[in-house]
Amino acid sequence: MTTVDLTQSSVRELNQALHDLPKDATGEWTVNGTKGEHAVACGIDAPLDVTINGHAGYYAAGMNQQANVVINGNVGVGVAENMMSGRVHVKGNASQAAGATAHGGLLVIDGDAAARCGISMKGANIVVKGSIGHMSCFMGQAGCLVVCGDAGDALGDSMYEVHIYVKGTVKSLGADVVEKEMRAEHIEELGNLLSEAGVDDDPANFKRYGSARNLYNFHIDDAKL
């Protein structure tokens, strides 16, 4: 196991050491002394197990590929932004834009996530055990956003094809978002995500939301494709 203390070495040194590993490298890394530093463990591309002890700043575990990153603390803006694969698990709360533009992998947040959670997500799955803030999943394109608590204003505004599942209340739906029927495939999909995220709950307690596909971008009558 490799242990890095960020009060002794820089984030740049940590990230460079992670980047220097081959794509098939395995092993355990522990990062201590984060003190809210930004960009901790960004850009990993190897199936490592990384544990971050303490609160992290912006973009923690951003652009992750393959790695399993656990953060024992809160995170700032943009945790796991643009994640491609792997898994990022935040044991505390997350600030704004958690999982922004993420293409793949699973982001689990044990606490709450602030505004714009899953903004423009492109295929990742996000499970938030608490609540999420306003404008979450704005222009979300693909993947699933699961919320065990409540959602703030304008959920899913101008979204495309993300599957949004919310157990609690939704303060308001964004433009062109509607509640949709929970069919068998959705119960199955949500059940799998809940169990993957370690949530013991019945998918039948959730509601599904998605795009009504009525915005102009779904009806481009003059496009010559």
Partner: peptide, 22 residues
């Protein structure tokens, strides 16, 4: 504005931490 400005305050590890609502 960012957590790392709070990181050295005494007792921060047990403080109630939150992001103010809009």
């Amino acid at each position: 504005s960012e957590y790392h400005a709070l990181a050295d305050l005494p007792g921060i590890e047990n403080a109630k931490l939150w992001e103010p609502e809009p």
